[in-house]
């Protein structure tokens, strides 16, 4: 099984931008790794303002949604804020169908996400 970095992490001021590396987030093992790397941003690094950038992501499964929900809870539990951005229309529809577009703070672009964050 391939293991490696599943997210690119950069900092803009005190905001952390985590960009998904994968085009397809469908494979369960992959999703487990993504979850671990996302949760570490909060639990190990203590980051509180996090933007998840989906610009590379073309496919996303419901299992990945579960990790995003857990991430949202962890960030909020730590008193932080989470935003999602750069979600292409097909993927956005996945959020809309499941009504998770109401749960998550979703912005069109990374610039929009950074604004007022």
């Amino acid at each position: 099984m391939a293991t490696g970095r599943r997210i690119d992490v950069e900092e803009v001021g005190d905001v952390t931008i985590a960009t998904f590396v994968d085009r397809k987030i469908l494979d369960e093992n992959n999703i487990q790794q993504i979850g671990s790397q996302l949760f570490a941003l909060v639990e190990e690094d203590g980051r509180k303002r996090i933007i998840l950038d989906f610009s590379n992501v073309e496919y996303l499964s419901s299992a990945a949604l579960g990790k995003l929900i857990t991430m949202d809870k962890k960030v909020k539990g730590a008193g932080g804020k989470l935003r999602l951005c750069a979600i292409r229309p097909d993927i956005y529809e996945v959020f809309a169908i499941t009504k998770l577009n109401k749960l998550f703070d979703i912005k069109d672009t990374q610039e929009d996400a950074l604004q007022g964050f």
Binding site: S61, S62, A63, L65, G66, K67, I69, T70, K73, V94, I97, T98, K99, L100, K102, L103
Partner: peptide
Amino acid sequence: NLERCGGRGVLL
């Protein structure tokens, strides 16, 4: 159910 981690596959 909105914050449950699973149960969305069949809906999608």
